[in-house]
Simulated scan of single mutants.
Amino acid sequence: MSVLIVIPARFDSSRYPGKPLAMLAGATGLRKSLIHRSWEAACRVAGVDRVVVATDDDRIKAASETFGAEVVMTSRSCANGTERCAEANRNLGGGYEIIVNLQGDAPLTPHWFIEDLIRGLHADPGAMVATPVLRCDGRALNGFLEDRAAGRVGGTTAVFGEGGRALYFSKEVIPYTAERYPDDAPTPVFHHVGVYAYRPGALEEYTAWGAGMLETLEGLEQLRFLERGRQMLCVEVAARGRQFWELNNPEDVPRIEAMMAGMGIA
């Protein structure tokens, strides 16, 4: 099974321009860019044949090459990371059985999340795409609810049915629950981890479709697959004591730095 990891990165983020080059201090105070830390996370994944950064920006290309990353230039017309992964795969000549999209704003992604994801897609021939989900504890759920109350998008939640088949993803906190949970208690809400594993045919289909209404409203690229009736597999992963958060807003930088310090990530 041949596996390619693509880290899509663009400079012109609407919520956080220049986000891939944002500097994050680790436990020792060492500062590295977000794209550097995301690349390091990708390189920790076992069983991967190749890791590349896919960008349309010369500043990101130059920064990535300074720490030894392979860079694939893609067009500015890519609407999201999935389209950028598809173009990167084509530019590399294809030939990979599974292409993983490790979005460049998730440097805390544990390697076993991606390893479990790859195994899950490989074992389920009916699924065209797979993505990890992490059950929220009370602390994480309360963080989501506080962010939404303050008008921030703190993360994406996922709802899925039997066999892990995805039903919906939202930037709202779903499913609704009126109950409040202790910090360490499990909840019925699942955090969608911003990683995808695709079969090559799914990527080619995706780029041939236009964005649907739900994708446009939510700003979530994976909804294009659901709107077209394609099966997505949600693979539940375990935190194993690790904290996880994506860098969505400038306000997330100190939160992620605190998490890295707490986990001893240099």
Rank of each mutant, 00 (worst) to 15 (best):
A42L: 12
M1A: 14
R59Y: 03
I265E: 15
L34Y: 03
E65Y: 06
V53Y: 02
I99T: 13
I99Q: 03
L223A: 07
A202L: 08
W209L: 08
C136T: 06
S64M: 11
A208K: 14
A88H: 05
T131I: 06
Q231G: 04
C85P: 11
P17V: 07
L220H: 10
V237I: 07
D12G: 02
G94F: 08
A239Y: 06
C136Y: 06
G155V: 12
A178W: 09
R31G: 02
S2Q: 02
G138E: 07
D57R: 03
M263V: 08
G229S: 00
G154P: 12
S64V: 06
Y198R: 06
A41R: 06
C234N: 04
G229I: 00
E115M: 08
A202S: 15
N91S: 12
A41Q: 10
M128E: 15
I99H: 08
T156P: 01
V3E: 06
G104K: 01
I174P: 00
V173A: 02
P188S: 03
D183Q: 07
L108T: 15
A202W: 10
V45N: 08
F144W: 05
I256N: 01
V100G: 10
E221S: 15
G138M: 03
L141G: 05
S64T: 09
E204L: 12
F160W: 05
W209Q: 08
D183E: 15
G229K: 00
H36G: 04
R242S: 13
L30Y: 10
V6W: 01
V253P: 12
A208I: 02
E70M: 05
S33L: 01
P17G: 01
D56G: 13
D252T: 01
E70V: 11
D183V: 00
G155N: 07
V235C: 00
A211S: 13
V159Q: 08
S33V: 11
W39I: 00
N142P: 02
L203P: 13
R199G: 11
G143K: 10
L121T: 08
V235P: 00
G143T: 09
